[in-house]
Amino acid sequence: MNSRPRHQSKLGSFALYTVLLIVSVVVVVPMFYLVVSAFKTEQGFLEHTFLPTGDGFLGIAWGELTTKQFHRLFSPEIGIGRALVNSIFLSSTTALLATFVCALAGYASAALDFKGKKSFEWLILAALIIPPPLLIAPSYQWLHSLNLLDSYAGLILPAIAPAFGVFLFRQATLQSVPKSIVEAARIDGAGEFGIFFAIALPMLRPMVGAFLIITFLATWNNFIGPQIVLQSTEKQPLSVVIYQTQTAYYSDYGLLMAGTLVSILPVAALFLFLQRDFIAGLSSGAVKG
């Protein structure tokens, strides 16, 4: 009687681990390809799919690997260091402001009663439906009339109140901040901002962490926005600068890979730092209490 379920569970584990192994390979191989390609010469890139073969340890020609691409990236000719600083500034400012504004608006929408609340909620829902590419042309016009083109404000301001974020924090508040706790704080004498900062925000912490990462990543990877809004080379972030290393007639893949690796590392570090909150934020609906 007992051997059958055990047998079945062994089979289940085998299937599970096989699937996990395949998924890991699918995820790891491109990453590995990216890392090794960043350390190859242009010729080495064309000759070998992964590491160059030779007489070295593990049959690899270690001598053919080079950090040349990284030297080029950080040279004044490309100046990726400046772009890295720009990206960090743009992404962290946008992420912090967007998280703050969305948390505030989402909390207000969920926990407060105010005139025009229904219209506000409809507006948020309507904004969710509009596809972002549709907004490129009108946004450009608007930024032009506000004299915000070629400025970070022109990139940051339109991004600090995404409808998706407001809606996310609204749902998170409904789920994690019981009405009675807000009422208890009100009776305890806290003002509405006091309740938000001292009570609601700490209770929404997992969502704050998750949303910080989501917004940081979205801004970090944003290519079209900076490409359109920023004209000055010294203001451009990584995504645009890496793209500009390529020309219409020649793609330097080694340089591209090295640039991509440089652009991934800060995000990976942020994810490692906030991953507990990120996972808790994403799974907050799964477990009650």
Partner: peptide, 8 residues
Amino acid sequence: FQNYALYP
């Protein structure tokens, strides 16, 4: 309150 409403 019925559900205590303590600040967690």
